[in-house]
Amino acid sequence: MNTRQIILDTETTGLYPNSGDRLVEFAGLEMINRKFTENSLHLYVHPERDMPAEAAAVHGITIEQLEEKNAPVFAKVGQEIADYLRGAELIIHNAKFDVGFLDMEFRRMGLPPIDELGCTITDTLAMAREMFPGQKVSLDALCNRFDVDRSKRVYHGALIDCELLGEVYLAMTRGQFDLMADSGSEEAEQVHAVAEIKRPARLKVIQADETELSAHEAYLDALDKAVGGACLWRGEAGA
């Protein structure tokens, strides 16, 4: 897997990109082969309008702070953001929101929207709803589920949220990569060779001892914690 992935988040003045709200913070963390690189992009942006108190209460960003930072307007950094995103798989929690704002800002500059930059979108909110139907799937809830430390998160900042989402995404998709994806690898060839060994018609059954049973119970307890209830394996064992 050599896909360039970017964990992405934004902060804005409000919820409605087509009704005057603007982007005020952008963060992207690059990941290649499930490893974070040093190629990150974090920018504060002056929205060229006021900052509603309810928005500042969420992300902690005020117009005064942006002016102290000499934050540029989006027109000054839009091309840099577009170039950074081009051709990548974007990992976003509630992608419709962030993509809506980026497309609006790009459109104001005459730049192409996200889908014309050759990007693909992976929405971790949709993933979580499919994995955990009927359960809370906010970023906070997923951090709790996967034991991701969010103690440093005072506000919903784009950069800290990207860092948390990166850990959550890796936890959510870890099972997909535990198996060897590269059938040409040395390890995969060894597994294939073992699979072709002829087994005897009858195999000796060895029962688990107390230590092994205890370890198994501990593993099931961990699964229970991860899913917030009785895991599937425990349910089947008791059936």
Rank of each mutant, 00 (worst) to 15 (best):
P52K: 10
P52F: 13
A53C: 05
E54H: 14
E54N: 15
A55M: 11
A56K: 11
A56G: 06
A56H: 09
A57I: 11
V58Y: 07
H59T: 04
G60K: 13
I61Q: 00
I61Y: 09
T62L: 09
I63Q: 11
I63W: 04
I63K: 14
E64K: 14
E64D: 15
E64N: 13
E68C: 04
N70C: 03
N70Y: 04
P72N: 06
V73R: 12
F74Y: 01
F74A: 02
F74R: 02
A75D: 13
A75P: 00
V77Y: 06
Q79R: 10
Q79V: 09
E80V: 07
I81A: 01
I81G: 08
I81P: 01
A82T: 07
D83E: 15
Y84C: 05
L85R: 08
L85N: 09
G87Q: 05
G87H: 03
G87E: 06
A88C: 02
A88I: 03
A88F: 01
E89K: 09
L90E: 11
I91S: 02
I92G: 12
I92T: 11
H93A: 11
N94K: 12
N94D: 11
N94V: 13
N94I: 12
A95E: 12
K96Q: 09
F97V: 05
D98P: 00
G100K: 09
G100C: 11
F101W: 02
F101R: 04
F101L: 03
F101I: 05
L102D: 10
M104S: 14
F106E: 01
R108K: 14
R108L: 10
M109Q: 15
M109H: 13
P112A: 06
P113K: 02
P113C: 05
D115H: 13
E116T: 04
L117P: 12
G118K: 00
G118D: 01
C119Q: 07
C119R: 10
I121P: 03
I121H: 03
I121S: 04
T122E: 06
T122W: 05
D123G: 11
D123H: 09
D123V: 03
T124E: 14
L125S: 05
A126D: 14
A126F: 14
M127I: 12
A128I: 07
A128P: 05
A128M: 06
A128W: 08
A128G: 07
F132D: 02
F132V: 06
P133N: 04
Q135C: 00
Q135P: 00
V137I: 15
L139F: 07
D140L: 08
A141S: 11
C143D: 12
C143E: 15
C143F: 09
C143H: 11
R145D: 05
R145E: 06
R145C: 05
R145M: 03
D147F: 14
V148W: 13
R150E: 14
R150Y: 15
R150P: 08
K152W: 08
K152L: 13
K152Q: 14
R153N: 12
R153C: 10
V154F: 13
A158K: 07
L159V: 10
I160F: 08
